[in-house]
Simulated assay, not measured.
Amino acid sequence: MAASSELQGVHQPGPVTVRSISLPSRLHPRADRLEAVLNRLKSSQISSPSVLVPLGAETIQTGLVGLAELYNCLEELINSPHTQQALLLYENGKLIEEALDGSVTLLDACGTARDMIFTMKGHVQTLQSALRRKGVDSRIESDVHSYLHFRKKVKRDIVKCLKALKRAESKAAFSPLLDLDHHLSMVVRVLKEASAITISIFRALFLFLSLRTMKTNTTRLSLISRLMPMKLLCSTEGQKIVNEVGSVDVALSSLPGHLRNNDAKNEVQLARRMLDTLHLSIDDIENGLDCISRRLVQNRVSFLNILAQW
């Protein structure tokens, strides 16, 4: 509960500066693609500072796919001889050092998210196997307790990650450098906007994983009754909102009591469906994070290679 209340103080998305960027076509034949990808991500729901409802797995996955495309475009920009020369000449590589410093936080956030997803996937698979066993027994209570304990620990870890992302966001906030030429100014702007978008997507992912369990004042209500007033991924004012992670939290929170009363058939079936949906969702997110991790590592290597030329 302490971690949940802490989240309320740090989870609000910071604004992503929206600027119209114009990349010279002579820089690279695919410059227009980079501009399009940046602008598409900046205008998407996942990067919007006004979104206060929990996002679903599909939105997160779409953001990760777009982010991978963005870093592919950035590689082409960074590997341009014109760009490399400009970065090296400005204050003895100061901008490269700043980019490398920021990349550490992004890599740490990506690694933490991957670890969380991997562990959650293991718990989900264990629960799926337990609920498929013929003759559901009390051993499931231990599996449910283990999963819910993991969820509480995740929320505490996410608080730390969100704070680290907030610090990185403030440190890398866009501020025009008036003494830069047009090309270098454009490169700096693109890199900072890419960093801001990456932070926004990681923030959305952590919030997806930290969604608080919905509670009801009537503990004797069946699981189905508890889920009925909740509309999955709905932003309608006044309605309770859950995503794939939250729906499993709700499904599991009352399951042990029904198991002890031997009236869990419907609840088990519903919990299995929720777990199946979550399993598919985290599979997609896990693949997306693996891809982003490789892109972030390559991005860091590219900057290190530029410094090696100095």
Rank of each mutant, 00 (worst) to 15 (best):
Q8V: 03
Q12K: 13
P13Q: 10
V16T: 06
T17N: 03
L23F: 05
L23Q: 04
P24W: 06
D32K: 12
D32E: 13
V37A: 09
V37Y: 04
L38M: 12
K42R: 14
S44Y: 05
S50E: 13
V51A: 07
L52T: 15
V53W: 15
Q61W: 11
G63E: 02
G63C: 01
L64N: 00
E69D: 10
N79V: 04
S80F: 07
L88H: 06
L89R: 15
E91R: 15
L106P: 00
L106D: 01
D108C: 00
A109H: 02
T112L: 09
R114T: 06
M116H: 13
K121C: 02
T126N: 15
R132W: 10
R132M: 14
R133Y: 13
G135Y: 04
I140A: 15
R151D: 12
K160S: 06
K160Y: 05
A164R: 07
L165M: 12
K166A: 13
K166P: 00
E169Q: 14
E169L: 07
S170P: 00
A172I: 00
A173P: 00
D179T: 13
D181I: 04
M186T: 15
R189T: 10
K192L: 04
E193D: 09
S195A: 02
S195F: 03
I199H: 10
S200L: 02
F202K: 03
F202R: 04
L205N: 09
K215C: 01
N217Q: 02
L223S: 11
I224V: 14
P229R: 06
G238C: 06
I241F: 14
G246W: 06
D249Q: 15
A251G: 08
P256D: 04
G257T: 03
R260T: 03
R260K: 12
N261H: 15
D263F: 02
D263C: 13
A264G: 08
K265C: 04
N266K: 10
Q269S: 12
A271R: 05
R273T: 09
M274S: 10
D276V: 08
L280I: 07
E286P: 00
E286T: 04
N287M: 09
G288Q: 01
L289W: 01
D290F: 08
I292Q: 05
S293Y: 11
R294H: 11
R294L: 12
L296R: 03
L296A: 02
V297F: 11
V297R: 11
V301A: 08
N305T: 05
N305H: 11
Q309R: 15
